[in-house]
Simulated assay, not measured.
Amino acid sequence: MSAARDPVDDATLALLLEVAGTPKPGNVDRRRDLDDLRFESFLGGAVGAREGLELAATDEASVGDAFERGVAGMADRAGTNTQFGCLLLLVPLLRATVDDTDSSPAGRLTPTTVDRVTRDATVDDAVAFYRAFEHVDVAVADPPADAADLDVRRGSDAASVLRDRGLTLRDVLAISADPDDPDRVPDRNAQEWVEGFPRTFRAAEWIRADTGPLTDRAARAFLGLLAAEPDTLVAASHDPETARRASARAAALLGGGDPGSAGPADTDEIHADSVHRADLDAAESLATAFVDEGINPGTTADLTSAALYVALRRGAEVAP
């Protein structure tokens, strides 16, 4: 039973299964390296993050400190940023898994318990989150003009601002989750933090109800997530229009849109059946095109790893 397994093992396995899922258009997978990222780097990052994940599964460290420790270990072992966003999602999921305020292990990992974890985050957690940016280079969009002093790239230099304003980690992420500019693509990871992880739990059900190797299920879930909403990293690295077109191209593989359209399919149009029927052979050509065009849906990969963790906790198994 999944509840009897060590949640840290499941979190580590989720990181490994995510990068092993193939094809994930634009991302590193078993068949593709990028110019500055290799498959083996992600394996090293998953191993290096272990200490942070272990802290997240105990009460020996705050959520922010566990996250920073995970990022530092990842960066040390991988030599670069491989799973920063994955860890931002996995740490509260792990803490919710072992939350001792719930009576049964099987009932702990729910949107309600994860929401409670993020609501309990403190100003110190926000400071640790900013400090984590000093360990690796993370591609982020410029902050809104009225929040320049909260630019995460300031690292520890932003601590005094955070403390003076009493901003918790959830408060900080809420700014990115709901940008004032309607053309700006929201930070999907930040949205998970403030909305109760709806994308994560939905994609986890896609994975759990699917069949075949978990790596194939992960690749199909990745396509479903990308088809539903434009990717934050693509928008930050290129522009919102490119991110929306990339989602439309993924949606076309699921039979949910026109690859030449200017935006993704409506989220409500992405059903489990269309995800389960996704043609991974057809996705290979899109993967090649995205790599050639430098389109890297990294935030979608973060969500996929989180969904894999939830699916593993809810009974998904590595195929024999």
Score class of each variant (00 low, 15 high):
Ala3His: 15
Arg5Val: 10
Asp6Tyr: 02
Asp9Ser: 14
Asp29Ser: 06
Asp29Trp: 01
Glu40Lys: 10
Leu43Pro: 11
Leu55Asn: 02
Thr58Asp: 10
Gly70Phe: 04
Gly73Ser: 12
Gly73Asn: 13
Asp76Asn: 06
Ala78Pro: 12
Cys86Pro: 10
Leu89Ser: 14
Leu89Ala: 15
Pro92Glu: 15
Leu94Met: 13
Ser103Cys: 04
Leu109Trp: 06
Asp115Ile: 03
Asp115Cys: 05
Ala121Glu: 14
His135Cys: 05
Asp137Ile: 00
Val140Arg: 06
Ala141Glu: 14
Pro144Ser: 08
Val152Arg: 07
Arg153Asn: 14
Arg153Ser: 07
Asp157Lys: 13
Arg163Phe: 09
Asp164Ala: 15
Arg170Cys: 03
Asp171Ala: 08
Ala174Ile: 02
Asp183Asn: 01
Arg184His: 04
Arg188Val: 03
Gln191Asn: 01
Gln191Cys: 00
Trp193Met: 04
Pro198Arg: 06
Pro198Gly: 07
Trp206Asp: 10
Trp206Gly: 13
Asp210Phe: 06
Leu214Gln: 05
Asp231Leu: 04
Thr232Asn: 05
Asp239Lys: 11
Arg245His: 06
Gly255Ala: 09
Gly257His: 07
Ser261Cys: 14
Asp266Ala: 13
Glu269Gly: 13
Ala272Asn: 05
His276Arg: 04
Arg277Ala: 14
Ala278Arg: 09
Leu280His: 06
Asp281Gln: 12
Ala283Lys: 06
Ala287Met: 13
Val291Trp: 10
Thr299Leu: 09
Ala311Lys: 00
